[in-house]
Design a protein around this nucleic acid. Structure first.
Lengths: 112, 112
DNA sequence: GTAGAATGATCTATATATGATCCATATCTA
DNA sequence: TAGATATGGATCATATATAGATCATTCTAC
């Protein structure tokens, strides 16, 4: 409902985005790549890379991860096989839960 | 240079995005939230939440992290303070490196 | 010190992500 | 099983992210 202009992000999300941006910049400098060079490898313009390294919440999710991967940052501390394994485990766990959530005559939500 | 339509993502990045999407869905089901409910909390439409849970590379980076945070997924395995601490350490390390990277009479890039 | 290169910041046009809506299907509750 | 609700998918108009360009500034190598 809120127009994307009005969008608000939690402080935690903002901090995490900023951190990833800084990690990408650090990785780039360590690998002695210019902004232009990294931008080309990621497949974006230099201006977009600037936003990536600032941790701008509005950049494409895929671009952040692509840039991170190129400079050697692996989320989840896993290589490709590890990520795929985790993905299957997630599938398994999802399969154990109800497919739909019903709120007909329900009260709250949280527990565990 | 490449039109955003043509954009290609590495397999690793794609796998990581898909994993995060599944983790978000798992978190939502465990907390017994309907798609509509989580979408409202994130501040997006249900259709966008569908793309988030699919790990669509084109959703805003901030939305992925916001949704993840709401269902209790913390990247970097850190709380807000931990993330900010890491952020400062990243600043320190960046400060130790040259501000500009020069490629005048240079050869390769990698080392570390 | 100086020249040249990299970076930061800003602006505009255009491609596109998002919100809204609708329909069909699946699946839970009673 | 029936009825109600959640979900998946597709479409379209609109707000907006991105590419590209320009200019000023900062830094490095020489």
């Amino acid at each position: 409902m809120p127009s994307p202009t009005t969008r608000a992000y939690s402080r935690y999300a903002l901090a995490a985005m900023e951190l990833l941006g800084k990690m990408i910049r650090l990785g780039r400098l360590r690998r002695k790549l210019t902004a232009q060079e990294l931008a080309e490898r990621v497949g974006v313009s230099r201006s977009t890379l600037q936003r990536i390294e600032k941790g701008d919440p509005k950049v494409e999710f895929g671009l952040m991860l692509e840039a991170a991967a190129i400079v050697g940052i692996k989320l989840f501390d896993e290589d490709e096989k590890g990520v795929m394994a985790l993905s299957e485990r997630a599938d398994d766990r999802i399969a154990l839960l109800p497919k739909h959530i019903y709120k007909a005559g329900t009260q709250a939500d949280d527990d565990f």
